[in-house]
Computed example of a mutant assay.
Amino acid sequence: MQVLRKLLLPISVVYGLIVFLRNRCYDLGIFSSKSFTTRTICVGNLSVGGTGKTPMIELLVRSLHQKYQLAILSRGYKRKSNGFLLSTHKTSVEDLGDEPFQLKSKFQKVAVAVDADRRNGIAQLEQIVKPDVILLDDAFQHRKVKPDYSILLTAYNNIYVNDWYLPTGNLRDSKREAQRANTIVVTKCPKNLSLSERNKIVDKINPKEHQKILFSFLSYNEELKGININLEDLKDKKVTLVTGIANPVPLEKFLLGEGLVFEHLKFNDHHFFTEQEITVLKGKECILTTEKDYVRLKSKLTNLHYIEVSHQFLDDDAKIFETELERFMTTNS
């Protein structure tokens, strides 16, 4: 696979040129970026693959929901509906998409909408919901909207400065576009990441004066959801791990580190399970899955548990994050 990706380098060069020209058109004003009256916070990345965007949206909701009325706008990747859709208690996971549905299930009082046209989505939310702030999920590369604050995520094991354009690498946008971010969060770090290694990463990223570089790791909740039991209780069961996410490796490592023995059935990101696959899963003794996969499986299986994941910042970075967020919200009120 790696050899094939290297052979596709000429396509990557063409792709990179197209990305460069597109961004230059926005920089020069040939293509327009629109600002909105409602405050917007963008969460995104420069690459394909999991960097933890949904857990970051959840963190923002938890930080802001007590003081502000929030709305979340997502594209709703692989949903079976079209155009703008504002979720209600009747909206299905197929109509909304798995990640927006997960967010709506967890935060009932927060408006969650999907629209591939981010401008239209924001305009609709301003008219219908009138929120104080709109959280734009996976929107860093969507330059038709100019967000008021941008959080760029990059995974520790594949920091964007070391990457290359698709299909040889995983970059879908130019590295130089990172300069538009207010905060860059290096996600999925080891919990014991040393200060010297952090400094090396900061030197590689070479942030602008206005940018903060923060470090986080994934924290897994050992109190399983679905059927509420503890992770420890699964050690005497025949466990099947089912994942349809971009990068299941951190979860695999965590479970192995906890001494759990399991078979792992891997599916593509945002996978919608077929009837044949559901029949196979029904025959398993105990299924452990991610929260994103759970929302697609919960109506079809009873032998199902999911493990919650959240971002936890290293050392004082949590305080820095909260301070920067509060500064933005109070200076833009």
Rank of each mutant, 00 (worst) to 15 (best):
T154M: 05
W164T: 14
Y165E: 03
D163F: 09
Y165I: 04
L171H: 00
I122T: 02
L70R: 06
D138W: 06
L96V: 12
R79D: 03
A139S: 11
R176P: 09
Q127W: 14
L166Y: 03
L166V: 12
D115I: 02
T88F: 11
Q127S: 14
E177I: 09
T88G: 13
T168D: 07
D138A: 09
Q141W: 10
N82V: 12
Q108S: 12
F107Y: 15
E177Y: 10
V114T: 08
Q124F: 10
F101K: 00
K90Y: 13
I128H: 14
E99M: 07
P131S: 08
Y149I: 04
R118L: 03
V133F: 01
D95F: 10
V129K: 07
G169E: 07
L70M: 11
A113E: 02
F107M: 06
N157W: 09
V114M: 07
T91H: 07
Y156I: 11
D115P: 01
L85T: 07
A123F: 11
K106P: 05
L103V: 08
N162R: 14
V129L: 09
D95Q: 14
L135G: 01
K90N: 14
D163C: 11
Y165N: 01
A111T: 07
K104L: 08
I122H: 00
E177T: 14
Q127N: 15
I72R: 02
K104T: 03
V133C: 03
V145R: 01
L85K: 02
K106D: 07
Y68R: 11
K175A: 10
E99D: 06
T91L: 08
I128C: 12
K67M: 12
Y160R: 05
K80T: 14
D115H: 03
K78G: 12
N158P: 03
S174L: 15
L152V: 02
K130R: 13
P167F: 05
Q102R: 05
E94V: 10
G169P: 07
V93Y: 04
D137R: 05
T168Q: 12
G76K: 00
K80L: 13
K106N: 10
G121C: 07
T168K: 08
S92R: 13
R118I: 04
R75H: 07
S174M: 14
G121H: 02
F107P: 05
L171P: 02
L152H: 05
L85I: 11
V129Q: 08
G83M: 13
S150Q: 06
K144H: 13
Y156N: 02
L125G: 04
L171A: 07
D117W: 01
N120L: 15
D95A: 15
G121L: 00
L70G: 00
R75A: 03
Q69K: 15
G97L: 01
A123R: 12
D148V: 04
G97I: 04
L103F: 04
A113C: 11
V133Y: 01
V133M: 01
S92L: 10
V110T: 08
A71W: 04
E177Q: 15
Q108I: 11
L152C: 00
Y156W: 12
I122C: 07
D115C: 14
K175H: 13
D173N: 10
V129D: 05
L70C: 08
L103E: 02
S87K: 02
V145Y: 00
I122E: 00
V145W: 05
D163N: 13
R176A: 15
W164C: 12
V145E: 04
K109A: 13
